[in-house]
Design a protein around this nucleic acid. Structure first.
Length: 430
RNA sequence: GGAGAGAUGGCCGAGUGGUCGAAGGCGGUCGCCUGCUAAGCGAUUAAGCGGGUACAAGCCUGCUUCGAGGGUUCAAAUCCCUCUCUCUCCGCCA
């Protein structure tokens, strides 16, 4: 959410941001209501002042005095008028809140302008796309051949865009979660969090999923609860409506969660394989930082996510998202894209964003810069560190051998009792 | 699921209709004192939204806020209703 005062004073900046991000919103309606609201506020506050003063006088004079009786009659009318104005204000406030929640964050100055992903800018790459002496298979074929990933039965027991993992496949998923958490907590200074996988509407609003993107989330029928689309939601909301001490910052959290996404509007895209599932695992990195440090914190966060892929020896590149591909809440975002040989392309495996104070204002996350100082909004950041299912896909494809087996990345072998490959029997061997 | 108790400032905790934005304590800050430390003394210390003044820090001022929402009343932390959460006991349960 943007600061109302900022919107009032910089409507053109907001308008430009909306155009750059391709977001619609009733900015003019907001500004008109804002002016109206302040007029009403002045009127009702003057009336309340009168009522408060007279009520005090009644209290002093005694409620049964003649003067008090007269004043009570007067105040009855004043109170009616106040109630009427308060009702109007409530309606305007609610309308303004809805509009304000629909306005996107302002893109950072370094964000390239552009409509879609074609305008994203590659900032660096690591490793070379894997070379094969044979035609590399897609991960869904490898998974089926090794009998470690089962899409047909997932379709039977649940539906499309779900997967069942067996044996070494299940172990690989679990090993990756542990490996990522171990890395971030021991090497990068994050505190591990294991959050609930269901959150309430206030949390979804705090991080920006609601009200605009309700169709993307699974809601539990008959309740106010949503399946988390990412651990970002519960973890960022840990500090909702809190005032943190400046010395506590920065706060780093690393959280594993299953993630649930309805994938509204994604019909027909990535229908095969692990790339786009309704349920997937992810280790998420979340930071609460001082505003002046959020730029460099985004660089560090992105580096922390890259480290995962470097240790797994998976080739990747880092893209700076252009305005049109940036999304609603971030001011700046890097996507890390891993090399997928079968598709002969890079695919997103992590998204690292600086939300500046956009989420913090929605969620009421502040810090006190010093004793007696006014509380200010923190800056929040998060990034995948990294998406587990897509990492499995990348490992299967990049580490596949001509005989159909898949080598296990060196850093994961301790999770496989030292075995170095997954063989056709569906178990690990060495 | 049933019964009961509760939710007050950074924290603890008083407060059953007006003198309450709220006693007291802890913690924080400033000052004094004590030749270190500790203790002691004094002062100060909630947030949001407006208005005024100022280059600004700030100062002055109005309104709102005692879990959330609604109601009664001239007036609500205080009375009534609904909801949420916490605790205790009972039931059920991986």
């Amino acid at each position: 959410m943007l600061d109302l005062k900022f919107v009032r004073e910089n409507p053109e900046i907001v308008r430009q941001a909306m155009a750059l991000k391709g977001e619609a919103g009733d900015l003019d309606g907001l500004l008109a209501r804002d002016a109206k609201r302040r007029d009403l506020l002045k009127e009702v506050e003057a009336l309340k002042q009168t009522r408060n003063r007279v009520s005090r006088e009644i209290g002093k004079a005694g409620a049964d005095s003649d003067a008090s009786r007269l004043q009570k009659d007067e105040m009855r009318e004043v109170s009616t008028r106040i109630k009427d104005l308060d009702d109007q204000l409530r309606l305007i406030d609610a309308a303004m809140e809805m509009i304000l929640l629909s306005l996107p964050n302002i893109p950072d100055a370094v964000v390239p302008h552009g409509k879609d992903e074609s305008a994203n800018v590659e900032v660096r790459s690591w490793g070379e796309p894997s070379k094969f002496t044979f035609t590399p298979l897609a991960h869904w074929d490898i998974g089926a051949n090794l009998d470690i990933i089962d899409f047909p039965r997932a379709g039977k027991i649940t539906g499309s865009r779900f997967a069942v993992y067996y044996g070494a496949g299940a172990r690989l998923e679990r090993a990756l979660i542990s490996f990522m958490l171990d890395l971030h907590t021991t090497e990068h200074g994050y505190r591990e969090v294991f959050p609930p996988f269901l959150v309430n509407a206030a949390s979804m609003t705090g991080t920006g999923q609601l009200p605009k993107f309700a169709d993307d989330a699974f809601r539990v029928e008959g309740t106010d609860l949503y399946l988390v689309p990412t651990a970002e939601v519960p973890v960022t909301n840990l500090h909702r409506d809190e005032i943190l001490e400046a010395e506590q910052l920065p706060i780093y959290y690393a959280a594993y969660s299953a993630c649930f996404r309805a994938e509204a509007g994604a019909h027909g895209r990535d229908t095969r394989g692990l790339i786009r599932q309704h349920q997937f695992n992810k280790v998420e990195l979340v930071k609460f930082v001082l505003p002046e440090t959020s730029d460099e914190e985004l660089e560090k966060l992105t580096g922390d996510a890259e480290k995962v892929l470097q240790l797994l020896e998976l080739p990747y590149r880092v893209m700076l998202m252009c305005s049109g591909d940036l999304g609603f809440a971030p001011a700046k975002k890097y996507d890390i894209e891993v090399w997928l040989p079968a598709a002969d392309t890079y695919r997103e495996i992590s998204s690292c964003s600086n939300f500046t104070d956009f989420q913090a204002r929605r969620a009421g996350i502040r810090y006190r810069p010093g004793v007696g100082k006014k509380a200010l909004f923190v800056h929040t950041l998060n990034g995948s560190g990294v998406a587990v299912g897509r990492t499995v896909a990348a490992i299967l494809e990049n580490y596949q051998q001509e005989d159909g087996s898949v080598m296990i990345p060196k850093v994961l072998r301790s999770y496989f009792h030292g075995h170095d490959r997954i063989t056709v029997s569906g178990s690990e061997s060495g």
